[in-house]
């Protein structure tokens, strides 16, 4: 037993290392509480300084009554919508899209929207169901792109808030140069 016992100095080092870990957990959780909470609960977008006006998940009823905001959809709902020919729209940069994107998605970078919108409108008809996404719960580009597309005349726009991280984590197919 004695050979397995740690010296007081080593025990102290391990205790201090543990305290460092506890401190980091406390800082990380307190600074990113909303992000973590939303990721675990699957709630609406929440980034610092941004409050989502979306009250709840998309349903047939609130899609009809609240057409000015894109409704969030879960991964399961996304599957059903894709089976009905909904179109995935990647709101990230063109470079990120080239690297990797959800299989079958179209690129429409929100940061450079004006230079892509005309071509996009020629390519995708306004009666299509569109589902925007970006880099997960910490990213608001997909929601803002959804809002803009609704203003541009697209009647049925939804937001997949889990985005690329959730899609990857679920083992869904990806496309792009990095694949």
């Amino acid at each position: 037993m004695n050979s397995l016992s740690l010296s007081p100095a080593l025990r102290r080092i391990i205790l201090e290392a543990f305290i460092l870990c506890v401190l980091s957990v406390a800082v990380g959780l307190s600074l990113n509480f909303k992000l973590i909470f939303n990721a675990f609960s699957g709630k609406a977008i929440s980034v610092p300084g941004y409050t989502s006006p979306v009250p709840e998940k998309a349903t047939a009823e609130n899609l009809e009554t609240s057409p000015s905001f894109p409704m969030p959809v879960s991964l399961d709902e996304l599957d059903e919508l894709l089976a009905l020919d909904a179109v995935l729209i990647d709101a990230r940069s063109a470079l990120s899209f080239q690297q990797e994107h959800l299989a079958g998605a179209l690129s429409l970078p929100f940061a450079d929207l004006n230079s892509h919108l005309v071509a996009f409108k020629q390519q995708v008809s306004s009666d299509q169901t569109l589902i925007t996404y970006c880099s997960g719960y910490g990213c608001s580009d997909s929601f803002e792109l959804g809002e803009r597309l609704l203003k541009e005349g697209y009647a049925d726009v939804l937001v997949y808030e889990g985005g690329l991280p959730e899609w990857k984590s679920a083992g869904r197919p990806l496309e792009g140069a990095g694949q």
Partner: peptide
């Protein structure tokens, strides 16, 4: 890791 755990780890690791 499961999906949401990626966010948990990503929220703590940089500060450590």
């Amino acid at each position: 890791l499961p999906y949401a755990w990626n966010y948990l780890v990503a929220s703590i690791l940089p500060y450590l």
